[in-house]
Nucleic acid binder design. Structure first.
Length: 210
DNA sequence: CCACGGATTGGCT
DNA sequence: GCCAATCCGTGGA
């Protein structure tokens, strides 16, 4: 898959409804420029956060220094630091002051995989299991793509970090469920992932292997 | 000012 | 399945 033949997603795309965009992000490619090369992967799992009605969202209690970017309108990257050691990357959506974003939870590596491996494991050769684990979680995606707090606020319309288009998936291939790792607003079904994709971070027990 | 706990991960039982 | 690692943003006092 050559990133250069795909079209970058327009600013307009990001200014729409957060839940709609979350579903449409599935199947598109997250791209990071790494020198002359690119790191890229198919987005296979996301979660929506909407501060207007969602207590789990960082923006639920209004603007702070940390969440400022989530209020700056669709088309930027919101990156935050958590658990003392991990970063999480989000696509900001909607209009100015909406406070809505989509967490990128998992990516299927497609391009620049060798660089991802080095970024994440600090070595060149990995096992099959480590390949599956390369980007199947929000902290892992940031590590593999070398995304950190310096990338907070990056415009996704620029050439550093961006998303390239692909046809929207059929609704039948999208699974929906409760979000992972939160304690508030736990019942909102705002996690979306590609059904059956092996790079999704985790499956409900009914779909898991024994 | 300070204590709490988190949109996680990886290692060990 | 359980839990430590590790740090800083946030909220209550």
């Amino acid at each position: 898959m050559k990133i250069s033949v795909h079209k970058k997603v327009s600013l307009k795309f990001y200014k729409r409804d957060v839940l709609l965009i979350a579903k449409e992000l599935l199947g598109k490619y997250l791209v990071r420029k790494a020198g002359k090369a690119f790191i890229a992967g198919k987005i296979v799992e996301v979660e929506a956060y909407d501060g207007t009605i969602d207590e789990a969202s960082h923006t639920y209690r209004g603007k702070t220094k940390r969440n400022q970017v989530m209020f700056e309108g669709g088309g930027k990257l919101y990156v935050y630091f958590t658990y003392g050691m991990h970063f999480c990357a989000n696509v900001v959506t909607g209009k100015m002051n909406d406070g809505k974003a989509i967490l990128i939870r998992a990516v299927e590596p497609t391009e620049g995989i060798q660089q991802m491996i080095i970024n994440r494991y600090g070595k060149e050769i990995i096992s099959e299991k480590e390949l599956i684990n390369l980007c199947n979680g929000p902290g892992k995606v940031c590590r593999a793509f070398n995304i950190n707090v310096n990338d907070n606020g990056t415009k996704l319309t620029g050439n550093d970090i961006f998303i390239v288009d692909s046809k929207n998936l059929k609704p039948a291939s999208i699974s929906t469920g409760k979000r992972i790792g939160i304690k508030k607003s736990v019942d909102l079904p705002w996690r979306y992932y590609i059904t059956g994709n092996k790079f999704v971070s985790r499956l409900p027990s009914s779909q898991r292997e024994k």
